[in-house]
Every structure is written in C-alpha cells, then in structure tokens.
C-alpha cells in the first residue's frame, strides 16, 4: 500500500494523464459488466436488472436448438481471419508503396482517395451493392445485357457473397489501416536507408531487409488487437450488404446477424445478453491463448 502511494506521488502527473482513459473504461466497460447477470435472468422493467428472477442457462438454449451455432461461429472466425490477413497484407503493401513514392502531391492524393471509403456508412454501401447486383435493373446485369451476355443472378449464389464481402471490407477499411503502417514506416531512421543505399542495396532489398523487419511489432500489435474481435461479426457490414436473403446465409451468416434475426420479433433482453456473454467468453479464451503463444515466441511482442 505505502509503495503504491509512493508511486502515485512520484508519478502523479502521469497518473493524471492516464486517468481519463481509466475512467472511460471503468464507466463504459467494467461497470456495465454487472449487466452480464441479465443473461441468466428473465428480465422485466419492474424488478430491474438485479431483481428479476433467475432462469439459469435457459436464455442460451436457442443457440443449440437451432443447430446453427457451430456454423455461424465458424463463419465469423473464418471471415475475420480472412479480413485480418487480406486487409493487413494490403495495408502493408500500400503503405510501403506510398512511402517509397516520390511525388509528394500524388502521394497525398492517393492516400486521401484510399482513405475516403472509410467515411461511407455501411447503409450507403448496402445501397451500392443492391444497385450493382439487382437482377432486373442492376448495373452489372445492365452491362452484361448490353454486351449480349446472360444476366447473372447473384442473389441466389452464396459463394459469390464471400468475395463481395471480402472486397467491400477491404475497400472500406484498408485506407484507415494504411495510416498505422505509414506512421510506423516514417518512424524508421532515415540513416539506415542511406547506409543501405551506399552499400548498394536496391529498393526491394531495402524493403525486404529494413522496412519489413521494422514493421513486425506494429503488425503483431494490430493483429493481436483484431484477434480479440475475431468472434464478433461486424453486424452493420454483414446486415447491410447481405440483407435478409436466406438463400446465402450458409456462407454469410455470422453470430451477430444470427442473433439479431432470431430475436427481432421476440425482444428478450436476456437472450441477447446471452449472445454477448457467449462472444465475450470466446474472445477472452482466444486472446489469452494467442497472447500466450506470442509470449513464448517473443516476449516483447506480447500484449501482457
């Protein structure tokens, strides 16, 4: 206790600086955790969160009753893994290209252009998708028809949606992620490059032996952070792009869309909370495991 107080005293400015963040997570992340009890209760307004009757695991039952739990969990993890690999890969490549690019104005322009889709709401993206692939009037089919080809019916072809979703996810988020990598590259000491150049290293050798190794910590941190969310499907994205199209759910359904659809007409708070608990527990296990392995390989890269 006394040593803690000493520490508090010594670093009081630093503690002050971190306090908003601590307060933020305390109020918005830790305190609401008490709400987990709703998942085990039959909630009603009169008795409130803590007074409502306990129902044990009753609220979780619909997961396995529908027989879809496994499928949607696998879908969620696979999609997020794919996003992680593809998006991070693209971000690194684009960041390196931008960094190596000579013209300052062209670089600025490209960076903004790539960043722009990040600000477009998924609702609007959903409208894009519908207007592209609508069978009768969609742009794609109109183009195909004018070329004399047969129109394609994307809405009943579930495999096509995997690519559509991957494409739009990359299109929308790569610009944002690129900024992290670009910042990391800018931090690399310029003298290293100059030294390499004098030693006769060409562009590719410089990238291979200087830029990439310097990026590894950033890559690992970003990947660890996204691993924590690997069982959370981006509801906005999946719901707005795919919509209520049952034909393709086997390939596009993620935990979040599954839960919303199941509970839309029922409105049972306990059951939605149960879904949240399931995801949180799974996230917790996954992030602890991944962190454990990272730690064993290279202690400095681990989150904790």
């Amino acid at each position: 206790m006394t040593s803690f107080l000493k520490e508090l005293k010594r670093n009081r400015i630093k503690f002050l600086m971190i306090s908003p963040a601590v307060l933020f997570y305390l109020v918005l992340a830790y305190l609401p955790m008490g709400g987990i009890v709703i998942a085990f209760k039959q909630f009603n307004y009169n008795d409130g969160i803590f007074g409502s009757p306990w129902v044990g695991f009753e609220n979780f039952r619909y997961f396995w009753e529908s027989g879809q739990l496994f499928q949607v969990t696998i879908n969620t993890i696979l999609y997020n893994a794919a996003f992680m690999i593809i998006n991070n890969g693209l971000e690194i490549v684009i960041a390196i290209i931008l960094a190596e690019m000579a013209g300052k104005y062209l670089r600025r322009f490209l960076q903004s252009a790539i960043f722009l889709p990040y600000f477009i709401s998924w609702v609007v993206v959903g409208a894009f998708v519908y207007n592209l692939f609508n069978f009768e009037f969609g742009s794609v089919n109109t183009l195909l028809k004018s070329l004399g080809a047969d129109p394609i019916d994307v809405y009943s072809n579930s495999s096509a949606w995997i690519w559509i979703i991957l494409f739009f996810s990359a299109w929308k988020s790569v610009g944002y992620g690129t900024v992290f990598y670009l910042a990391a590259i800018m931090n690399i000491d310029n003298e290293t490059y100059e030294a390499a150049e004098i030693d006769g290293a060409n562009v590719f050798q410089r990238i291979r032996h200087i830029t990439l190794p310097a990026l590894v910590p950033t890559i690992i941190i970003l990947i660890l952070l996204s691993v924590g969310n690997i069982v959370r499907g981006d509801f906005q994205m999946f719901y707005q792009i795919v919509g209520d199209n049952g034909l393709v759910f086997d390939k596009t359904d993620v935990i979040d869309t599954f839960v919303v659809r199941s509970l839309l007409t029922i409105q049972e708070f306990g059951m939605s909370a149960a879904a949240g608990v399931y995801q949180s527990v799974l996230s917790f296990v996954i992030i602890i495991t991944v962190n454990y392995f990272v730690r064993r390989v290279e202690k400095d890269y681990a989150l904790f």
Binding site: E58, Y62, F258, L263, E268, M271
Partner: peptide, 14 residues
Amino acid sequence: KNELAAVGNVLTQY
C-alpha cells in the same frame, strides 16, 4: 421463447 427464436431463424433462412 427459445423455440420461437430458433424457428424465426429457420423461417428467414429456409
């Protein structure tokens, strides 16, 4: 409730 949730899901999908 649980059955309704599961059935609702099957209805939309199939």
